[in-house]
């Protein structure tokens, strides 16, 4: 049962917890394998940090309130909305943006599949869609169409590229599966 409680004195804490801000201060981010130190306020979102402080504009700001998916990036490999995450909360995590996907000038198979299936029109939602698909394929190399739909359900596309996006994801999965050494 719940009860109303106590007014006992608190024991002193051995180590005081650092309280940061509200002014700018240093935060450390690892983005696409590179370390960065930023000088920002605690209220800085990951999205603003990426776009404005690091110049990584591949993640877009379509709504800034967790409703469109254009800001999707990977946090430790999982897709998240960068607009709903404080940059300061990303310390100690690995962030992947669309800029980190192509390796040595070679497009990632998901990127190639998006081009081949024409899974984009204006292209504004595309970085987010691609990262959502990549995260899915990393976790589940053999997705069904239903899995793909679930995986990109948080990425709106106002141009309506959806049918082609689904095809591109399945094509990429197939291509990845057929790659030697997998």
């Amino acid at each position: 049962m719940a009860k109303a409680v106590r007014a006992e004195p608190e024991p002193e804490l051995e180590v005081p917890v650092p309280v940061r801000g509200p002014e700018r201060g240093p935060i450390k981010l690892r983005v696409n394998g590179e370390k960065h130190e930023l000088w920002v306020e605690p209220r800085r979102t990951l999205l603003d940090a990426l776009r404005d402080d690091l110049g990584l504009t591949g993640a877009k700001k379509g709504c800034d309130e967790g409703t469109c998916g254009t800001c999707t990036v990977l946090l430790d490999g999982k897709p998240i909305y960068a607009c709903l995450r404080l940059a300061i909360e990303c310390e100690g995590h690995e962030i992947t943006t669309i800029e980190g996907l192509a390796q040595g000038g070679e497009l990632h198979p998901v990127q190639r599949a998006f081009i081949e299936e024409d899974a984009l029109q204006c292209g504004f939602c595309t970085p987010g869609q691609i990262l959502s698909v990549k995260a899915l394929l990393d976790e589940n190399p053999n997705p069904t169409e239903e899995d793909v739909r679930r995986a990109v359900s948080g990425n709106l596309c106002r141009c309506g590229a959806y049918p082609h996006i689904v095809r591109a994801a399945l094509r990429a999965a197939k291509g990845l599966a057929e790659r030697p050494g997998r």
């Binding site: 804490l13 917890v17 650092p18 309280v19 940061r20 801000g21 509200p22 404080l86």
Partner: peptide, 16 residues
């Protein structure tokens, strides 16, 4: 603007 803390211990969190 706000301040930010990230305690590791529950007591510290509750106190903050």
């Amino acid at each position: 603007r706000f301040r930010y803390a990230r305690p590791e211990r529950l007591e510290a969190a509750l106190r903050l």
